[in-house]
Write a protein that binds this DNA or RNA. Structure first.
Length: 862
RNA sequence: GCGAGGGUGGCAGAGCUGGUCAAAUGCGCAGGACUUAAGAUCCUGUCUCUUAGUGAGUUCGAGGGUUCGAAUCCCUUCCCUCGCACCA
């Protein structure tokens, strides 16, 4: 049967049997999840196929190992591309999205995945986003969803604001060529910082990739320091510092030029200059700011040093971030490189307060001294080690009520407002009388009567915008911002547990039965976006009492990237993309799946290679041919050995997700099979094949006379007693004799050998043998004797011994196979079509004389 | 600049809890078998020298070190990839 027909045959059978539709049962559960896709119009790419194949291989393996496996799929279908594509094609984003999803499902089904389609979620349906809105309401009530005005990142191409996480190198995450602008707007935020401390704690995500954990740590950026109060114009202003030990060296303060209260500090005389300065800054893009020199301008105000009472000038600066710490820093030019440069530029004095040895330096410093040292010029703190001084100075500040110890995070609250149509509407109404009112009549559905074009399309829908206040029934306007699409993907993993529940977000028992995810598979590019948000949501929903776990996934796995054959990132413009459907049409999805996991380890990047795919396709062809012809016969000890030792390896390798190595083992085993094999061994082989090429495996399984699915069969048990490494030796021995005969034949240039003499040394002894005899007595692996030798006076012979030991060990093994009473066995194994005479050399002299070595018989040809 | 990961044979990619490693496997290449021929399939070879089998030498970015012994451990250095880039 043609591969295409085989595949559709089994896909149909699986679907009809509802094999992969699961419910809670008494088996241990295993929840494997691949990050759901954004259903783009161009359909599945190989990266998707790779992603699902990895998950599916594990899902199938776990299923066969007796787990109740949940493996769902859904679509992250809100988002800008759909809106833009719809505008371009003149359709509605909803139509466009539905079409794309249909296409995706079709393509995914052809991969033969174990998805439980009954649990599909689509985020752009009101059935789903109703619960996004519900969560928003809960957050709002708890003060975790709030509105504030602040400088934000604006992408002029997306025509919307972006979260900090969505700004990469000053560019929009969707538009590599578009610089992000800074605007001041009132926007909705989720208070992710509420969980900063817990997000920073990685105790319960130990099985996540180190890389992801590092990136998150970095992003969350916890740092310990102190808050110090400076009095400016009779008002207290706080400053955050990680170096309170340098407090006595402060010679000026710098407030962020973006600071909302900057103008409060600016004196009349300086107003014009400062305003000009600020204006200049906002007109440049963030990217340019990166390269900008440290610049500032005097505000006209002076701050009072909390300890010395000295007056230091306050500057506004372009290098101070408005929303980190307090938006204002104390500058210690002698001990901070930025401050140093700034002070040099504006001729501000410096004050050295730390030196390496605690003595005053006379020389003018050429750069800031940032290393550890001892305090000088610091009054009563002089002579203190700077680490100790951090504590002492902070204590002093606490005593005089001018500061305290504190912790700061780089993590900011998550800006979720988007000025676009195709997202979850925010359930808020602005009433003239009541102000901001939460609208809990969910779902608040997206209106269809909108015009796309300039600005936010939602504002064009009268029916949507103009509403009555739910509180007082007077005229009100609806919020027209929608939520960032990362909101939807922050909890979809939970909805799978109870995807069709219309009464509540999910059933508590169900969600806690399936979750947390046992294995979550996706790209590492989500480390600081989706993977932080989903952790945040998990914690929030836990605190609502809905979840009894703290982290979304126990284990996270990042698959590699597939580049084009030319080594570049796949892209249409480069013309190096691979069409999944076309590949499946040509080679079948089994070949595609197996190829994807056979090239390299699933975590490493690799280049697509058609030849590699062909090689797998050829292999599967051969296997298919083989199952057409194979005769089912009796078992042989040697084959059993091979099958079970392969099984043992493959089981471990799949468990460790070393699929490429497992496939090599399978290929080796297949090469080993002959015209006749025992049913049992063939079945084990088919079962091992099943996670990698499920369709063909089912076909073979059926051919072997089985009525049930192999997909649902139990993974074979390794029978240790069948594993006997002597068979491996036997094979090597026979193979080497055969190859020796070949080469001798070639050199002697004899076409047809009529008779052959093999002189076999089966009791060959080396001189060292007697010395080592005792050590070797019960050892079969050379590595095992090393420790013993290293403890004896033989140590100096280490290298020599290591050369000989394997041979000696071999001689211990040789007699079992190569001995007089096995003569017939040897002949049978050699299977030569000429007369073969075997002569045994009993002792070393005789063997030596005849040039025979253990494991290498002397060959005489006639 | 900081942080992470990596550099293995013509290529891809194993090996990296030190010893049976001249290094799995696949691709490529060469030779052979089969075939009218091609494809497919099968066999053999594929670092260098040498021997019939065998042995010897030089290899795992470069240079040192530890060790009886290193692709594997340590140090230095070069190169590549990817993250963060003014976080006070």
């Amino acid at each position: 049967m043609e591969i295409k027909n085989i595949e559709s045959k089994w896909q149909k059978k699986w679907e009809e049997s509802k094999l992969f539709e699961v419910e809670k049962n008494e088996k241990p559960k295993f929840y494997v999840l691949e990050m759901f896709p954004y259903p783009s119009g161009s359909g599945l790419h190989v990266g998707h196929a790779f992603n699902y194949t990895i998950g599916d291989t594990i899902a199938r393996f776990k299923l066969m190992n007796g787990f109740n496996v949940l493996h769902p799929m859904g679509y992250d279908s809100f988002g800008l591309p759909a809106e833009n594509a719809a505008i371009k094609e003149g359709t509605h984003p909803d139509k466009y999205t539905q079409k794309s999803i249909k296409n995706f499902i079709l393509q995914q089904k052809r991969l033969g995945l174990t998805f439980d389609w009954s649990r599909m979620v689509i985020t752009s349906t009101p059935e789903f986003y109703k619960w996004d809105q519900w969560i928003f309401c809960e957050m709002y009530k708890k003060g975790l969803a709030y509105r504030k005005k602040s400088p934000i990142n604006w992408c002029p191409k997306c025509n919307t604001v972006l979260a900090n996480e969505q700004v990469q190198n000053g560019k929009c995450w969707r538009h590599e060529d578009t610089s992000v602008e800074i605007k001041h707007l009132t926007q909705w935020y989720f208070k992710t910082t509420q969980y900063a401390e817990e997000l920073n704690n990685q105790e319960k995500i130990q099985e996540w990739p180190e890389l992801v954990k590092k990136l998150q740590k970095n992003w969350i950026g916890k740092s310990y320091g102190s808050e110090v109060v400076f009095k400016i114009n009779d008002e207290d202003w706080k400053v955050f510092t990680t170096r309170p030990d340098t407090l006595m060296g402060v010679t000026f303060l710098v407030i962020s030029a973006q600071h909302t209260r900057l103008m409060d500090l600016v004196t009349k005389e300086n107003k014009d200059k400062v305003e000009k300065f600020v204006q200049k800054l906002t007109s440049v893009s963030e990217e340019e700011i990166d390269q900008l020199e440290k610049e500032g301008i005097f505000t006209g105000s002076y701050a009072v040093h909390p300890i010395t009472g000295e007056q230091v000038p306050v500057f506004a600066g372009n290098f101070v971030l408005a929303d980190y710490g307090c938006g204002m820093v104390m500058a210690v030019p002698a001990h901070d490189q930025r401050d140093f440069e700034f002070a040099k530029k504006y001729n501000i004095p410096m004050k050295v307060v730390i030196t390496a040895n605690g003595k005053q330096n006379i020389e003018e410093p050429k750069m800031a001294y940032t290393d550890a040292g001892v305090l000088v010029n610091s009054g009563k703190f002089d002579g203190l080690d700077n680490i100790k001084a951090k504590e002492e100075i902070t204590k002093e500040l606490e005593k005089i009520n001018k500061g305290n110890k504190t912790v700061n995070f780089k993590l900011r609250d998550w800006l979720i407002s988007r000025q676009r149509y195709w997202g979850t509407p925010i359930p808020i109404i602005y009433c003239e009388r009541c102000g901001e009112v939460l609208d809990e009549n969910l779902p608040i559905t997206l209106p269809m009567d909108v015009k796309f074009g300039e600005g936010n399309p939602l504002t064009t829908s009268e029916s949507f915008v103009n509403v009555k206040c739910p509180k007082c029934n007077s005229d009100a306007k609806r919020e027209t911002d929608t939520m960032d699409t990362f909101v939807n993907s922050s909890w979809y993993n939970l909805r799978y547990a109870d995807a069709n529940n219309s009464n509540e977000i999910f059933d508590k028992d169900k969600v806690n039965y399936w979750n947390p995810i046992d294995l979550y598979i996706g790209g590492k590019e989500h480390a600081c976006m989706h993977l932080i948000y989903v952790r945040f949501y998990t914690k929030f929903l836990r605190d609502l009492g809905l979840l009894n776990f703290d982290e979304p996934a126990i284990k996270m796995f990042n698959q590699g990237m597939i580049q084009g054959a030319d080594g570049n990132k796949m892209s249409k413009s480069k013309g190096n993309t691979v069409d999944v459907t076309e590949i499946i049409d040509r080679c079948g999805s089994d070949a595609l799946r197996m190829y994807l996991v056979s090239v390299a380890g699933p975590e490493s990047d690799f280049n697509w290679n058609d030849r590699g795919l062909d090689s797998i396709a050829k292999f599967l062809n051969k296997v298919q041919d083989y199952f057409e012809k194979v005769k089912v016969g009796n078992s042989q000890a040697k084959k059993d050995h091979k099958v079970h030792s392969t099984l043992k390896d493959v089981t471990v390798l799949i468990e460790k997700m070393r699929f490429n190595l497992a496939i090599i083992k399978l290929r080796e085993l297949f090469d080993y099979f002959g015209e006749e094999e025992s049913k049992e061994n063939l079945e084990i082989f088919v079962k091992m094949l099943s996670p990698f090429c499920p369709h063909l495996a089912e076909e073979f399984w059926e051919k072997l006379g089985n009525k049930e699915f192999v997909s649902n069969a139990s993974w074979p048990k390794v029978i240790e007693s069948k594993i006997n490494s002597e068979f491996d030796f036997e094979d090597k021995y026979v193979a080497s004799i055969k190859s020796d005969i070949e080469s001798v034949k070639n050199l002697v240039k004899i076409e047809k050998i009529t008779s052959l003499k093999l002189i076999i040394a089966h009791k060959w002894k080396y001189d060292l043998y007697s010395m080592l005899k005792e050590s070797l007595a019960e050892v079969s692996n050379p590595a095992e004797i090393i420790p013993r030798i290293m403890n004896s006076e033989l140590k100096q012979y280490g290298q020599e011994i290591m050369k000989i030991v394997p041979k000696i060990v071999k001689t211990k093994t040789v007699p079992d196979f190569v001995s007089r009473d096995k003569e017939e066995n040897i002949l049978k194994q050699l299977n030569l079509d000429c007369k073969v005479e075997i002569i045994f050399a009993e002792d070393s002299q005789e063997a030596k004389a005849k040039n025979a070595m253990p494991g290498k018989p002397s060959i005489l040809i006639k």
